[in-house]
Design a protein around this nucleic acid. Sequence first.
DNA 1: TCTTTTTCCTATTAATCTTATCAGATTAAT
DNA 2: ATTAATCTGATAAGATTAATAGGAAAAAGA
Lengths: 140, 140
Amino acid sequence: MMRLSTRGRYAARVMLELALCYGRGPTLLKDIAKRQEISEGYLEHLLPPLKVAGLINSSRGAHGGYTLAREPSKINLKEVVQALEGSLSPVGCVDSPSVCQRTGFCVTRDIWKELGEKISQTLESVTLEDMVKRQKGMGK
Amino acid sequence: MMRLSTRGRYAARVMLELALCYGRGPTLLKDIAKRQEISEGYLEHLLPPLKVAGLINSSRGAHGGYTLAREPSKINLKEVVQALEGSLSPVGCVDSPSVCQRTGFCVTRDIWKELGEKISQTLESVTLEDMVKRQKGMGK
DNA sequence: TCTTTTTCCTATTAATCTTATCAGATTAAT
DNA sequence: ATTAATCTGATAAGATTAATAGGAAAAAGA
C-alpha cells in the first residue's frame, strides 16, 4: 500500500515538537510523548536513529533531554523520514540493482526510480521552520 | 518503508506487456506470466482488479485471454497502481480523517496529503504508450 | 453434448514486517 | 548516594503480504 510506517510519521511529529521548543533547552522524551500522544516506550526506539543521523542531540541524567542539532530552518523532512525509514525508493531494486535480473532492461524500474526522486525532492523542500509556521497558523 | 507492494509493481509490468501486444488479439495469462517472470497462480489475483477498474477486458474459454480496454496512450500508471494498491496516500488519515483525533490541527497530515498529491501527479503523467516507447529504446 | 481451454473464485498457509512492551544498563546532576 | 534521565536488547502480538491449491464457470470446437 505504499504507506509510511509509524516510524517515519512519528519521527516527523517528534521533530516538529522539538522545533516548537527550539531555544528553550532540552525537552524530555516524556513530554514529547505526552504532547504528541505517542507511547513513551515506543518513542525510546525512534529517538536514537535521529541522533545517529545528526538531527538531534541528547543529554542523559537529571535535566537531560533532547534538542535539535541545528536551527529548524536547516533541517528538512527528507532527512527526518530517511533517518527512520531508511530509503525513500518505492521499490528495493532502485537501491540494490542486483536483487533482480531484469534491472538492465526494466522500464518500470526506471519509472519507480523517478518517482522516488520526486518524493525526495518534495520532502526536501519542507523544513521544520515551515512546519512550525504552519502549526502557528492552525488552531492549536 | 513506503514500498510499493508486488501487487502494484506486477500490475505495471502486466499492463506494459499488454500494451506491447496491443492490437494483436487477446494475450494469455500464461504468456504474460512467462514473459514477465511472475507466477501464474499469483497473477490470477492481479488481473481481476484491473478488469474491475475498467483497464482491461477478458474473455474465457478457448482463444480467450486479456486485452487493454483502451489505447495505451489513454491509460496512465496512476490508474494501474491505484487499481491494485487502493490508495496512493502515504498515510491512512488522509483518506479517512476520522481514524485520528488530531486530524483538525495536525500539520504533518497536511504535508502527507500534499506528498500523496505529488505522487499521484507523477504517476498520472506516465502513460502505457510512454512505457512502450521507452521499452523499445532499451535493449530487450 | 462432450471435451478442451481458459478465466474466475475461495480458502488457506507461510513468511515477513510492524508495532509495541518490558526490564534493566548507563550516565549525569544534586 | 540518590534521583532523573536516556539507552539497549529481548521478545511477543498483530497485521500485512505473497503465494499456493482446488475447483467452478464459461466459451469454443468436434
